[in-house]
């Protein structure tokens, strides 16, 4: 690990200014991903700016019925929050299915979003990886592919974003509030992470020095039910092979509204907008759900080692929609 300086920021503007002055500086939240990457030699900033004491650790109801989640709210506090458990079960379930109790106690909301999109080759500095060293190629294209992308990948990178929380937030139409030198901006969560294209080194649309101050969750209309389902290689404490976050409203046997996001399938949380279009106004039946899943997966480009994910996504998505439709039918 290369030496680095450490500063604790006292206010948001100060934190942003410290990064603006130093292109090699990084924000430090819970550290669960960053400290690991420092140790692995994946990254080597020369200054860490600690942003955990900026008063961004609150969860507040918004006037419109939504909820504002501060950027440094710990994952465990967010999952345990009453408002979140009652209004956004999909988010509580996603958080609780991620990492371990110990990690959730450290990890922050902003840090969870900013954990690196990654794979085993990214974390192994002895292997080529264009995300770690731009232009060095992708080892996964001829290597271990079990956890890799089937949607939106490029020849430069087939890694997946491992967050569960972000998948639920994508389905909830969450908005990321960001503070930079030029003030504040709001980025829809579905636009926050990037597809790799020919710049796999860029995971998100954030500029250097921009700080996540909060994530806003819009209110869910009355009657909407939500759920998160994660499929993995062991029962707990493992990344998703695939996951589904869904929000559904069924009226008179017809899909009135639906939002779906997929995890473990792409460089970013994957909003399944093709499936959603297919479903709105359609009968809430297993046939419709299968057709919608197939429509979304028509764009899938699996590689040899992850072809199993196409039927796995289809089956998981249909199962989640069926469960939700049985709960919401009225």
């Amino acid at each position: 690990m290369r030496p680095f300086d450490y500063r604790r920021a006292d206010d948001i503007d100060g934190a942003v200014a410290m990064l603006a002055l130093n292109p090699s500086a990084a924000f430090l939240g819970g550290g669960t991903n960053l400290v690991d990457h420092l140790r692995l030699g994946v990254t080597a900033p020369d200054l860490l700016v600690d942003v955990t004491r900026l008063g961004l650790d609150r969860i507040e109801p918004l006037a419109d019925g939504g909820v504002r989640v501060g950027g440094t709210v710990r994952n465990s506090d967010l999952a345990a929050d009453r408002l979140v458990r009652e209004r956004y079960p999909v988010l509580a379930q996603a958080l609780l299915s991620g990492a371990s109790g110990q990690l959730r106690n450290l990890a922050t909301t902003g840090g969870n979003l900013l954990q690196r999109t990654r794979c085993v080759y990214f974390q192994d500095v002895t292997t080529p990886c264009g995300k770690r060293e731009p232009g060095s190629g992708c080892s996964a294209l001829r290597g271990y592919q079990r956890y890799h992308a089937i949607l939106g990948a490029s020849s430069a990178c087939i890694a997946t974003h491992p967050s569960d929380m972000a998948v639920a937030m994508a389905a909830l139409d969450a908005v990321v509030r960001v503070r930079g030198r030029d003030g504040e901006r709001a980025v829809p969560l579905t636009d926050f992470h990037r597809l790799p294209g020919d710049e796999p080194q860029r995971d998100t649309v954030l500029q250097h020095g921009e700080l996540i101050t909060a994530v806003d969750l819009p209110p869910l209309p009355e009657g909407m039910r939500s759920r998160y389902r994660k499929v993995r290689d062991r029962a707990s404490y493992a990344f998703a092979l695939v996951s589904v976050a869904a929000v559904l409203d069924v009226r008179d046997g017809t899909v009135a509204d639906v939002r779906i996001a997929l995890g473990g399938v792409a460089h970013k949380p994957w909003r399944a907008s093709v499936a959603e279009r297919e479903l709105r106004g359609a009968p809430a039946t297993a046939d419709s759900f299968r057709r919608a899943a197939d429509a979304e997966l028509a764009a899938a480009e699996p590689v040899e080692g992850n072809a199993f994910k196409v039927p796995l996504v289809r089956g998981t998505l249909v199962a989640v929609l069926r469960e939700l439709s049985e709960e919401t039918a009225r």
Partner: peptide
């Protein structure tokens, strides 16, 4: 690397992986 839990301590009353927490923070 935060994967095994052998380093678990209580930090201000909460269980955490002490291997991933920088002392300076």
């Amino acid at each position: 690397h935060g994967q095994c839990g052998a380093c678990t301590i209580l930090l201000d009353g909460r269980r955490v992986n002490s291997c991933l927490a920088l002392a300076v923070a």
